[in-house]
C-alpha cells in the first residue's frame, strides 16, 4: 500500500497537487506510513485468524468433541489480543512523541493561518515587521525546515489538513491551536479543510509548494515586493476601477490604497496556482468567470456579485493578471 497508492495518485492527480495521505512528503505522513504498515500487519493477522477459525468451525469433521481444545485456544487468543494491543498502543505513543519532537532543535518558520468561510488567510511572521508577508490560499515551505503554523478561526471551526505532509489540526474560534510540520520532499501538494464548515466546505482548499531553501527565499523576496504599477492602459483602467469600487473594501493589494482584510490578499494573486480557495485553476478565463459571478462558481461564497460591464471585467482581469 505504501508504494502502490502514491503511484496511483501521481498518475491521476491533476496539476493542483497531490492530496494522498500515504504520500510521505513530510515527517508526519512518513510516520503515518510506517505506523500504518505495522497496524496493517497486526490487524491483518487478527483478521486472518478469525477467518480461518470461522471456516474451520463451519467445515471441520465432528468426530471428536472440541470444547476442551477450544478453551486453550481462547486463552491464546486473549493473550494475542493483549500483546497486540500493547504493541500497537506503544508504537502509536512512540510515533506520536517522535512527531512532537521532530527537528525540535531547528528554528521553525512561523506562519499564522486564519481560516474563514471559505478561504485561508496566510501570514508569514517575522521579528522585523517589514518582512511580514500576507498571502492567501497558498503555502510555500522550504524543504527540511520545520514550520510552526499558528491556527485561528474568525467564524466557525475549520481543520487544516495537508495530507501529503502531516495530520490535521482544527482551527477553533476562541482557541489558540498550532501544528508543527516538517516537509521532507519537494513537490506540489493540495490541502483541504477537513472539518465541515458550512455551505462551501467542499471548496475550501489551498495549494502547498515545498521547494528548495533557495527557491523559497526567492519566492519570499518576491512576495515582499509591493504590487507593480499597471503598465498598459487596460490594466490601468482595471486598477482604477478596482480602487474606486467595492473590491478594495475587502481585498488588500500591497503598495496601493486597497487594504481590506475581510477577503484574501491579492498582492501577488497571479503567481498562485488556483483561485477561490483551490476551486479554479488560475487562468484569465477562470478569473473573469469568478469575478463576474462568484455565486455561480461557489454558491454562498462571501464575495458578492459586483455589477460590471464586459469592458470593466476585462480591464479588472487584465490588472489582476499583472499581480505576479
Amino acid at each position: 500500500m505504501r508504494r502502490a497508492l502514491p503511484i496511483v495518485a501521481l498518475l491521476l492527480a491533476g496539476c493542483s497537487g497531490v492530496q494522498t495521505m500515504t504520500e510521505g512528503a513530510g515527517f508526519g505522513s512518513r510516520q503515518f506510513n510506517s505506523l500504518m504498515l505495522l497496524f496493517l500487519i497486526v490487524t491483518g493477522i487478527s483478521f486472518a485468524l478469525v477467518l480461518i477459525f470461522l471456516l474451520l468451525a463451519l467445515w471441520r469433521r465432528r468426530s471428536e468433541p472440541g470444547e476442551a481444545r477450544v478453551r486453550s485456544w481462547l486463552i491464546a487468543w486473549i493473550a494475542f489480543i493483549v500483546i497486540g494491543l500493547i504493541l500497537l498502543t506503544g508504537a502509536s505513543f512512540l510515533s506520536d512523541r517522535r512527531e512532537a519532537t521532530a527537528a525540535a532543535d531547528q528554528q521553525p518558520l512561523k506562519v499564522t493561518v486564519s481560516a474563514s468561510q471559505w478561504w485561508w488567510g496566510i501570514e508569514y511572521q517575522n521579528d522585523d515587521p517589514s518582512r511580514i508577508i500576507h498571502t492567501a490560499n497558498e503555502l510555500h515551505l522550504p524543504v527540511g525546515r520545520p514550520v510552526q503554523l499558528k491556527l485561528n478561526s474568525g467564524d466557525v471551526i475549520h481543520s487544516l489538513w495537508i495530507p501529503a505532509l502531516a495530520g490535521k489540526q482544527d482551527l477553533i474560534p476562541g482557541r489558540d491551536n498550532d501544528i508543527r510540520i516538517l516537509p521532507t520532499r519537494i513537490g506540489r501538494y493540495r490541502a483541504q479543510c477537513a472539518e465541515f464548515c458550512g455551505l462551501q466546505h467542499a471548496h475550501m482548499a489551498f495549494d502547498v509548494t515545498v521547494e528548495s531553501p533557495q527557491a523559497f527565499a526567492a519566492w519570499y523576496a518576491a512576495q515582499l515586493q509591493p504590487a507593480p504599477e499597471p503598465a498598459t492602459p487596460l490594466a490601468k483602467a482595471g486598477h482604477d476601477w478596482f480602487m474606486s469600487h467595492a473590491c478594495s473594501n475587502c481585498h488588500a493589494i500591497g503598495g496601493t490604497d486597497a487594504n481590506g482584510r475581510t477577503g484574501p490578499d491579492l498582492t501577488h494573486l497571479a503567481s498562485r496556482r488556483t483561485i477561490a480557495a483551490g476551486t479554479l485553476q488560475m487562468s484569465r478565463g477562470n478569473l473573469m468567470g469568478w469575478i463576474e459571478n462568484p455565486q455561480g462558481v461557489k454558491p454562498g461564497a462571501r464575495m458578492p456579485t459586483v455589477g460590471m460591464s464586459a469592458d470593466e471585467l476585462h480591464a479588472v482581469a487584465s490588472y489582476l493578471e499583472t499581480l505576479k
Binding site: M21, G28, F32, S46, F47, S92, S95, S159, A166, G167
Partner: peptide
C-alpha cells in the same frame, strides 16, 4: 471484525490525525 480492526487504527493518534474526517 473489519470495522473493529479499522477502529483499532483510528484509536491511534498519529493515524487518526490523517484519517479523521475522511
Amino acid at each position: 471484525v473489519i470495522g473493529g480492526l479499522t477502529g483499532v487504527m483510528i484509536a491511534s493518534v498519529p493515524l487518526d490525525l490523517e484519517l479523521h474526517d475522511t
